[in-house]
Nucleic acid binder design. Structure first.
Length: 551
RNA sequence: GCGCUCGUAGCUCAGUCGGAUAGAGCGAUUGCCUCCUAAGCAGUAGGCCGCAGGUUCGAUUCCUGCCGGGCGCACCA
């Protein structure tokens, strides 16, 4: 926030003048209670010991010197144990409207990310069936996180890792193949592990219709053919479901391709060279325990096949070689035990700890009017992402997924997601935007013309406490984006939007915007509302939620 | 048993790089449309921030232990 920067540099100047150093723990932030001013600084409490003064005494020094250094400061006082509480002038806050107008959709953009090359890998569900609700949460979080990080100045790309090389894929091929044979009236013996979903039968039926001689193939060949077809079909379905959910990955990365490229061997060699591997019991091991894991892990089993971990190491190694220096993985929370070994792998690659982060996505409990919806594979229940999106819409689903911390479990009530009330926050926020648009439309109808860029004079009539509160909130948008991005916490955006929408609704109820007899005030309030609308749009865009002009 | 994680209002959840009197919505309850969208607003009630210690000027926030919930602990993926 501009106010924070202004105050920080003024305070730094004073600290320097006193011959002291700026402590790392110095914080400048809006106090909880707005009565304490716009910003509070704890600097005096931190420097008290070094300056041989009591905190309040030292704070008094700052209070006396600040106004000379900063014309925008209207009031500054010592409070509590030694805070410096600063209030900026109304004129200063009003200029926020002009900043929003100037930046438009780019308002909130910052450069705290310094262009760091970042890869967000998310969803990455095995292509063995349609995406379910849990994947949807991961999809929403990954997509919004990428948007958020870009807004904060990171250079972000997104990726879906296709697990097309392992056991699950063999089972998928087998499942379809057996269905094909069954449909053709051949005798079939069902193994313990196979995919039972109805989509498997659909694929088998299509394949059989396309090639009636298919069941005559040899088992292995038939199974391979089925695997190929089924995976592609399911992958297409996944892509379509994601597109309907407004999620698009820039890269689709195949595990199979990775394995065939020899990347696994290269990764093994690199680990061995660094002395992190050993042979035991006929298997090839990675000594992760020395790097913080519970125990050492197998990379190549005694039967010669690779573990999932092996190709995952190669995959992450490959990400680094592609030039990314921050890897963010979005995983289901049931994989949290996997984090230490992946961290061990990153460490073994010689990469710093902060080059790899995992965002864990907790379970989604699907409810219907407060009662749990069966998550079984039975038809007719809402289990897939596509079903849920169809039922409640992408906006409601995304907002719901993004309004809670991602690592706590989430109750998703289908009834509630369709309700048009404050129970359902997405409508509350969208309604605020639509209301603003309605007022702007009405103004236009009445022939009131608001210049695209307002001036100090035009904004001068913004002088109520509610005006100031909204302006401060708008000014804080960039900070919110930056801290949310760095904390990988998308839900901060939803909460900010809820607060901003609440303030707007409250303002709307209290202050008439279109005032027949007071043109100056009308114009200034219209400009403020337009700025609020812009910030609501920018925030909703980070969530991938639409901002309707009418509801 | 070990590890990770969570425990904040009746319910669902924010907040916490240590700061002043802990917030929101729902539910309960009382009001508000001759006026820009009532999908809204204003008010009231509701809290040992799981428990006990420790660190400090100051702890809901950090540390330790305990209690309770969730998840994980494969030569599975």
């Amino acid at each position: 926030m501009r106010a924070t920067d202004v105050l920080r540099s003024a305070l730094m100047g004073i600290v320097e003048e006193m011959g002291l150093n700026w402590p790392a723990k110095a914080v400048i932030e809006p106090p909880r209670d707005p009565k304490h001013g716009d910003l509070a600084a704890n600097i005096a409490m931190l420097l008290a010991r070094e300056a041989h003064k009591n905190p309040r005494e030292l704070a008094q020094v700052f209070v006396e010197k600040l106004p000379q250094r900063c014309a925008d400061i209207e009031k500054v006082e010592v409070a509590g144990p030694g805070f410096c509480n600063v209030t900026f002038s109304q004129h200063f806050w009003r200029s926020t409207v002009r900043e929003v107008e100037a930046a438009g959709p780019a308002y909130g953009q910052s450069s705290v990310g310094q262009g760091r090359k970042t890869l967000v890998e998310y969803v990455s569900a095995n292509p063995t069936g349609p995406l379910h609700v849990g994947h949807g949460r991961g999809a929403a979080v990954g997509d919004s996180l990428a948007r958020l990080l870009r807004k904060a100045g990171f250079d972000v790309e997104t990726e879906y890792y296709i697990n097309d090389a392992g056991r699950q894929m063999r089972i998928l091929g087998l499942s379809v193949w057996l269905r094909v044979k069954e449909l053709a009236g051949r005798p079939v013996e069902w193994p313990e592990d196979y995919y039972r979903g109805s989509y498997i039968i659909d694929i088998a039926r299509e394949m059989l219709a396309g090639d009636p001689s298919l069941p005559d193939m040899e088992d292995q060949a038939g199974q391979d053919r089925c695997y190929e077809r089924a995976m592609n079909e399911i992958l297409d379905g996944i892509k379509a479901d994601l597109a309907d959910f407004r999620v698009e990955h820039q890269h689709w990365f195949s595990e199979k391709t990775l394995v065939e490229s020899g990347a696994v061997k290269a990764a093994f060699d690199a680990l061995t060279e660094a002395g992190h591997t050993f042979d035991k019991d006929g298997a090839f091991w990675f000594a992760t325990q020395a790097l913080g894991d519970d125990k050492d892990r197998v990379l190549r089993k005694s039967d010669g096949s690779l573990t999932y971990f092996a190709s995952d190491i190669a995959y992450h190694h490959n990400k680094f070689t592609r030039g990314y220096d921050w890897l963010i993985d979005i995983w289901g929370a049931d994989h949290h035990g996997y984090v230490p070994r992946m961290r061990a792998a990153i460490a073994a690659m010689g990469k710093p700890r902060d080059s790899f982060d995992v965002v864990l996505i907790q379970l989604v409990n699907l409810l219907q009017g407060g009662k749990p919806v069966s998550m079984s594979t039975r038809a007719g229940t809402f289990e897939t992402l596509a079903d849920v999106v169809k039922e409640v819409g992408a906006d409601a689903a995304r907002f719901m997924f993004l309004s809670r911390k991602s690592d706590t479990s989430l109750d998703f009530d289908l009834e509630l997601a369709k309700q048009r009330s404050l129970d359902n926050p997405v409508y509350y926020v969208q309604y605020a935007h639509a209301r603003i648009c309605a007022v702007l439309r009405r103004a236009e109808e009445r022939g009131i013309s608001l210049p695209a860029a307002s001036t100090d004079g035009l904004l001068a009539a913004l002088d109520t406490p509610e005006d100031m509160a909204l302006l401060r909130k708008l000014a804080g948008f960039e900070d919110m984006v930056a801290t949310a991005a760095q904390a990988l916490a998308v839900h901060h955006v939803s909460h900010y939007l809820m607060e901003l929408a609440g303030m707007l609704h409250s303002y709307y109820a209290k202050h008439q915007v279109l005032l027949g007899d007071d043109t100056a005030r009308t114009l200034s309030r219209l400009a403020l509302l337009r700025a609020v609308g812009q910030v609501l749009r920018n925030g909703l865009d980070l969530l991938g939620v639409s901002a309707p002009e009418a509801m």
